[in-house]
């Protein structure tokens, strides 16, 4: 893709919305997700132009997850609705809240596997983990999420 500006623009146009949604699931804030996605995609563009990127998709998600991980270290409050957004369903808030109680790496595995639909090896490449570790994070993440959601629902109904 180096030197192929049209291909690069097509890539950015097609991947940007997906990447921003993944970022939102990771950080819980649309404004921050937009900012991180823009910065990540800008790096993808700049580094692809100079031929430093082998697989733009892996590079983009890898950079994004690392950026979210760095940002989340400093964040306590997790969910911020978009400006002007209508009311968000209570179930969605509970899910986001549960998701953000998971460790960042565990959350990243769940987002990449269950939202973005990447295979184990691709997720491993993006997060620099071997397949076994990805599978272990996924199992643990799903179990923890299930438990958290059950507890939250019980609290709501109770």
């Amino acid at each position: 893709m180096p030197g192929d500006e049209d291909g690069l623009r097509d890539f950015v146009t097609s991947r940007l919305p997906h990447l921003r949604r993944s970022a939102f699931l990771m950080c819980g804030d649309w404004e921050l997700a937009t900012e991180l996605t823009r910065a990540t995609m800008a790096r993808v563009v700049a580094d692809t132009r100079r031929g430093a990127v082998a697989d733009p998709e892996v590079f983009a998600y890898s950079e994004m997850m690392e950026a979210c991980r760095r940002r989340n270290r400093r964040r306590e409050h997790v969910f911020v609705a978009a400006a002007g957004a209508e009311g968000v369903a209570a179930e969605s808030i509970l899910l986001l809240d549960a998701l953000h109680k998971l460790a960042p790496r565990c959350r990243a595995v769940l987002v990449l596997r269950h939202w973005d639909g990447f295979e184990l090896d691709a997720v491993g490449a993006m997060l620099d983990l071997d397949d076994e570790r990805v599978a272990a994070y996924e199992r643990a993440g799903l179990a923890a999420l299930q438990k958290l959601l059950t507890e939250s629902e019980a609290a709501l109904t109770g």
Binding site: L16, R20, F24, L25, A42, R49, V88
Partner: peptide, 28 residues
């Protein structure tokens, strides 16, 4: 319900992308 379906609901209210693609190239 599978996690993927649950996550779809979470993303309701997603703000418009606007000129983010151009913004990416300007940032690059």
């Amino acid at each position: 319900m599978p996690l993927t379906r649950l996550l779809e609901h979470v993303l309701e209210g997603e703000p418009d992308l606007g000129d983010e693609v151009d913004a990416v190239f300007r940032e690059a």
